[in-house]
């Protein structure tokens, strides 16, 4: 098993643990672990400056901010039971999603066809580059917009009395 494979699997597992942790302080600690592993990947990829910033800002500052918020809010988290119900099925959902992505890999292949051809001389305008060369980025932006809409919908939706 290569070091990179070990790091990536650890990062995914720590992410799962961060969102499934019952207490916010534990979630913050697992998030710090994710940052540390990502910084290690950056160091192994010969990107030491980005690794140092990731380590100091994300694993340091942001973890302290999360821990401070958790201590200020204290036991105001009365949703632990509902949260644990929701996230119980996340590992299974993740496995199903991974299998779907693996099975549909050929379907997404045309999106990445031009990505590695960065020196394409015909693509000179920004529109050409965005629509033809960087199609995966465009799809990613759409996914982020969808995630943002879901977040806003969660914030504006009516809560059910429990």
């Amino acid at each position: 098993m290569s070091l990179h494979l070990f790091l990536v699997i650890s990062m995914i597992l720590c992410s799962l643990a961060a969102v499934m942790a019952k207490r916010t302080i534990h979630a913050a600690i697992f998030l710090a672990l994710v940052s540390i592993i990502l910084a290690t990947i950056m160091f192994t990829a010969q990107a030491p400056w980005a690794g140092a910033v990731e380590l100091s800002v994300c694993a340091g500052l942001i973890t302290v901010l999360f821990a401070s918020t958790a201590s200020m809010i204290g036991r105001g988290e009365s949703y632990a039971k509902r949260e644990s119900k929701i996230f119980r099925f996340l590992p299974l959902g993740l496995i199903i999603f991974g299998v779907i992505i693996l099975c549909c890999g050929d379907f997404f292949e045309p999106l990445f066809a031009n990505t590695h051809n960065a020196a394409a001389p015909s693509l000179t305008t920004v529109g050409d580059i965005i629509w033809k060369l960087r199609t995966p980025d465009l799809i990613g932006q759409l996914c982020i917009f969808v995630a943002g809409v879901l977040t806003v919908r969660t914030m504006l939706g009516e809560g059910k009395d429990e």
Binding site: S15, V19, T69, F87, V146, A147, L150
Partner: peptide, 14 residues
Amino acid sequence: IGVYTMAASRNLIR
């Protein structure tokens, strides 16, 4: 994992 959490959680910190 991140999008699922953003869509499903009712805890703002999460």
